[in-house]
Design a protein around this nucleic acid. Structure first.
Lengths: 208, 208
DNA sequence: AATTTAACATAACGATCGCTCGATATTAAT
DNA sequence: ATTAATATCGAGCGATCGTTATGTTAAATT
């Protein structure tokens, strides 16, 4: 009932909830308005269009994701440990915001092409971060496969797929899951797993 | 112009094309009808509803996928080689029918729950096939990770993600890509890669 | 040749879609 | 107190949605 701009946050939260559960196309503006007891026109007052609302959600999430990934990629660690930090950071962001992550991965193709903030170039930026790190590892002779593109996409598959099955309320703790996924990826890509991998990190201090 | 039931196949093909490129929800029945110069009512003559059309597409694809996977899982090979065959078969089916695979993975959640053929139970069946094989490998002490559920989902991630980036018309041959992906998965899951893996299969005769 | 069946078409129905308009209510600034 | 700016509302517009009712034509069957 409070008439304050904090309803904008509630609006975004409701839209995230609905977009993630039913999909962007299947969610009508009226659905969102009804779910939070607001009128349709108010949504347009805030975001101008349905796509503007989606764009705001995706842009916010993409900003967070890219910031954290770049921070991890800039860490002063050995290349392999830095890559593990990159992986775990990525998984942690996606696992902390599963709904935004789902929208980001599933509904980005539905954005009209005229938009200024293209979701595709965000995914391209993420790919570049990984490709850079992979090139480092390849030059050190640590990788078994020389096609970095395939390798990067394989890694994305593992990372992004866990939005399909991981449930925060389930029996598996997020950090445990992250560790197991990281191991799978690292053993899958490096050439000599026994020597190089230090197993589970004891105190990989991430600033979060 | 020919008035024959072969137009039904053309209808399915057109629907697959549009569902895969624009998504199920964003594709209207009129879109499909116009794309193949047919009237809307004819679609309903064939499939009864838009969801019936989607269901027919998914059911057909699921049947092919499950058949091939079960055939691979029944192969008389050593466990690890059989698992590689299972992986490559899965990738080959998905890579041969990329559009159906995309619809199957992205739009299955949009099916109404009343349906007789639930797309979810198909994915459950696929999961069961993999879990069985993984349990075999685990009992032989070949796996590094004991949580089969996580392992299976990691594998699904790699397999299913390649619909996002693999293009049959691109520079990478399908069989080459399949081999690299299989290696990534196998090295990621097994305990002693150097001894057990036979590298690229020379003549793993798959009946396809 | 007559009849039945399946493949098509035309037109429209009610519902819902994204969105806009004009007004009102509240808050902030002067 | 007045003004300006923002937040919220109710009503509705035109377009499109999935679907259907009612036909007409071509093929299959008898």
């Amino acid at each position: 009932m409070a008439r304050s701009p904090q309803n904008k946050d509630k609006l975004v939260a409701t839209a995230i909830e609905l977009f993630a559960s039913k999909g962007y196309q299947a969610t009508s503006v009226r659905d969102i308005a009804m779910a939070m007891d607001m009128t349709v026109s108010n949504i347009y007052h805030y975001f101008g269009s349905k796509e503007g609302l989606l764009r705001a959600i995706l842009q916010h999430y993409a900003q967070i994701l890219l910031d954290k990934l770049r921070e991890a990629a800039a860490a002063d660690l050995e290349p392999l440990e830095r890559f593990r930090l990159l992986l775990s950071t990525h998984l942690r962001v996606a696992g902390t915001r599963p709904r935004e992550n789902k929208i980001f991965l599933l509904d980005d193709e539905r954005l009209s092409m005229e938009g200024i903030v293209d979701s595709r170039q965000v995914q391209r930026a993420v790919l570049d971060i990984y490709t850079n790190e992979l090139r480092n590892l390849a030059e050190l002779g640590l990788l078994r496969e020389d096609n970095l593109r395939i390798q990067a996409f394989n890694i994305f598959g593992v990372i992004n797929w866990h939005m399909r099955w991981y449930r925060p309320e389930g029996p598996l703790a997020l950090e445990t899951t992250i560790n197991k996924i990281c191991n799978f990826v690292l053993y899958g890509m490096i050439k000599r797993p026994d020597a190089e991998l230090s197993g589970a990190p004891k105190n990989s201090g991430n600033s979060d």
